[in-house]
Design a protein around this nucleic acid. Structure first.
Length: 296
DNA sequence: AGGTTGTAGGGAAAAGCCCGGG
DNA sequence: TCCCGGGCTTTTCCCTACAACC
C-alpha cells in the first residue's frame, strides 16, 4: 500500500499552509519530477525558499516513504485511511521501528537522507532538517518564544505549545459523554457535540441550507458563486473542492484504487466500484432464479 | 436500446489544528 | 495563562447526472 500523501504534506511547514493550494499541487509536480520552487519563478514564488529549495530531498523522501512505509494490518482495497492514532502506528520496514506519527517517520527518514545539519543564523542552534529550521526561525522573526522540541514549530505562548504537544503525545482531555470520542480542544468537543444534537448554526443566506460547521457552509457557498479555486495543473480544469481535484487527477495517473473482490476489476472511484458490484448482485439473482427454475 | 463505465458535481459529516481575543 | 470562538484545512462517504462505449 502506498503511503497517503498526508504523511508528506503534514511535514510542510506553515509557510505553505496559509496558501490556497491543495496538497496535490505540491505532491503532483514532485511526482512528475518538476521543481516546485525556483528563485523568483516558482509556482509558490514569494514564499520562503526553505521548503521548496529542498525539492530533491522531498522527492527522495516521498520515494523512500512510498517504498518503505506500510501500515500494520492494512486492507488492500481501502485507498485512504483515517487519521492515525497512537494505537495505530506506522512501521518503517527498514528498521522495524514504530512511529506514532507520520511526520515523525518522515523526519526519521530524513536522517537517512541528509547529512548536513541546518544551522540557525540567529542562535547557535543546529537542526537536522530545513523545515525544522524554518519553524525555528519564527522564534527570531515573529517573536514566538515557545518551540516544540519534537517538530520545531514555534508558538507565541507556552499554552499554545502545550496544546500543540498533545498532537504528539496523543493526549485528548476533552471526552464526549455520549460516544466517548476524545479531543484535544474543548471547542473541538463542542463542534463534535453538534453531531449529536443535530444543531446546524450556519445557514446559507442564499438558499437557507444549514450546516453544522462554517467550513461546510463555505464549501456549499461555492456552488452559488461558482468559485473553483483548485485547478489541475495538467489540463487546467478547475474544481470547487480539493477532493474533487484529487479525484480528477486519478484520470491522469490512471490510478484505480478500488478493486472488485469478485472479478478483480478496478475503478478510480469508490462509487463506481459500488455501482459495478451491483451488476454482480444482478448476476447472483439471475443465477439463483435459474437454479430455482431448474428445480421445478 | 439498454447495460455498463468513466467522470464530475455536490452534499453531508467529521476531525485536526491554529490564531486572536477576552 | 487559559478558555473560547472562529477559521482553515482535510478526509471519507454518498448520491446523482451525463456522456461514451459496448
Amino acid at each position: 500500500m502506498l503511503v497517503e500523501h498526508s504523511a508528506l504534506w503534514r511535514h510542510v511547514p506553515d509557510t505553505l499552509q496559509g496558501y490556497q493550494h491543495c496538497k496535490s499541487d505540491v505532491i503532483f509536480p514532485l511526482e512528475q519530477g518538476e521543481e516546485l520552487w525556483r528563485e523568483g519563478t516558482g509556482f509558490l514564488q514569494g514564499q520562503s525558499p526553505v521548503i521548496l529549495g529542498r525539492e530533491s530531498a522531498l522527492k527522495e523522501q516521498e520515494l523512500i516513504a512510498t517504498q518503505h512505509i506500510s501500515r500494520k494490518d492494512t486492507s488492500t482495497v481501502m485507498p485512504v485511511q483515517k487519521s492515525h492514532t497512537p494505537e495505530d502506528p506506522f512501521e518503517y520496514n527498514g528498521l522495524e521501528e514504530d512511529f506514532t506519527h507520520t511526520f515523525m517517520l518522515t523526519q526519521h527518514l530524513l536522517t537517512h537522507t541528509e547529512k548536513t545539519p541546518y544551522i540557525s543564523q540567529q542562535c547557535p542552534k543546529s537542526l537536522s532538517d530545513q523545515s525544522y529550521l524554518n519553524q525555528h526561525k519564527q522564534i527570531h522573526t515573529r517573536g514566538k518564544s515557545c518551540e516544540c522540541h519534537l517538530c520545531g514549530k514555534a508558538f507565541s505562548n507556552c499554552s499554545s505549545l502545550r496544546r500543540h504537544e498533545m498532537t504528539h503525545t496523543g493526549e485528548k482531555p476533552y471526552e464526549c459523554h455520549i460516544c466517548g470520542n476524545a479531543f484535544i480542544q474543548s471547542s473541538d468537543l463542542r463542534k463534535h457535540n453538534l453531531t449529536h444534537t443535530g444543531e446546524k448554526p450556519y445557514e446559507c443566506h442564499l438558499c437557507g441550507k444549514a450546516f453544522s460547521q462554517s467550513s461546510n457552509l463555505r464549501q456549499h457557498e461555492r456552488t452559488h458563486t461558482g468559485e473553483q479555486p483548485y485547478e489541475c495543473h495538467l489540463c487546467g480544469k478547475a474544481f470547487s473542492k480539493c477532493s474533487a481535484l484529487r479525484r480528477h487527477e486519478r484520470t491522469h495517473t490512471g490510478e484505480k484504487p478500488y478493486e472488485c473482490h469478485l472479478c478483480g476489476k478496478s475503478f478510480s472511484q469508490c462509487s463506481a466500484l459500488r455501482r459495478h458490484e451491483g451488476t454482480h448482485n444482478g448476476e447472483k439473482i439471475m443465477n439463483a432464479f435459474s437454479k430455482y427454475s431448474d428445480l421445478r
